[in-house]
Design a protein around this nucleic acid. Sequence first.
DNA 1: TAGATTGTTAATCGATTAACAATC
DNA 2: TAGATTGTTAATCGATTAACAATC
Lengths: 208, 208
Amino acid sequence: MKTFSKNQLERYPFYLKYFKELQKEGVETISSPKIAKVLGYSEEQIRKDLQAISNEPGRPKKGRSVEKLIDTLETFLGYRDTTTAVIIGCGHLGQALLNYPNFQEMGLAVVGGFDTNPDLIGKEINGKSIHAMSELGEVALAQKVKVAIITVPAQYAQEAIDEAVQAGIHGIWNFAPTHVTVPYHIVIENFNFSSSLAVLIHRLYDGR
Amino acid sequence: MKTFSKNQLERYPFYLKYFKELQKEGVETISSPKIAKVLGYSEEQIRKDLQAISNEPGRPKKGRSVEKLIDTLETFLGYRDTTTAVIIGCGHLGQALLNYPNFQEMGLAVVGGFDTNPDLIGKEINGKSIHAMSELGEVALAQKVKVAIITVPAQYAQEAIDEAVQAGIHGIWNFAPTHVTVPYHIVIENFNFSSSLAVLIHRLYDGR
DNA sequence: TAGATTGTTAATCGATTAACAATC
DNA sequence: TAGATTGTTAATCGATTAACAATC
């Protein structure tokens, strides 16, 4: 089967965003040299990326249909399906994510939050309830929750993730800046401020 | 000169976090086989990573001094210096970042926010003022701002970044889920929810 | 037809892993 | 000394780039 590298997967949302802009402008087809100019990837890479997910070839001299590309990308990225998620840790960052408007169009339905702080439990944010951690298993089962977004302080991240796994959740999106371990069958993606900042700061002070 | 790949730079904060835990437990030296067990990188990679930033060799049979590693990493990552930053776009996400407690220990001093919404301008969040966009140049100059954190909606990201560049800011940390362009000499790091989510969702639904 | 763009195959590049002698 | 761990050099692996014939 085709495999996709992390870098490659990370590029697809940029293509989609760009193609949607083109569609809004009424552009009907797009070629890899033109994409290359705007997004800054090489033509060859763009052709490979789009070939890997398309089920029909591009047309020499024309390129590919913007509409079909959008369709293909949205399907490939799972935006046409709904993935149910909860947020564990409803501090400032967790609350911001409960309010984040873009998850829905990405097919991610955040259905609620969890916290240990009694002052937060029972509150509603953006129409979503904050529950006690003890209710996680029950909610996860009832709502078929697939993803836990971890926004607790680093020192509680492992514990929170263990409870999510215990509750039958298979996907972990970890925002806590620390290494954690998960069982073999669990998928974890670290979304790490400190890693991203390390890249920025290094490039900034390192003369390129 | 030594060069560092993005992947490599992204690993360093995980090392640092782990070594700080070891230090708290009173562990004095650490070897690459042990790090490999915990962080899940290969021994060889760990040796290369640590060699690349250390100015003295590790000791056969012992490993490296935890204290020295922490010192080296904090210096390398810029945590011992202060980099001044502002947040452009003070919606939920921007406000959460104004409140984010971990930036300080990473050497990032967020000194204020900027927005176009008159209801927000003049407010204080976590002791930091929200200014009108028109004040960006003045504040950037006065406070020697090095980094602009972009948390505006995608359609305003390019505009916000152009203004940051105009204001003399050289580092852009872009949280908006869209491609933007910057002049040659400006450093940009995209921290993109949709890219990270794409990786998670693909791995989750792809039998791996 | 000519030219732009495609898809494929080969070459290059860079990062990771393996092998192993050196050393405390 | 023996053994664990190091640093270095070579091999492998995977991703990106280059080259080019095919095609609309």
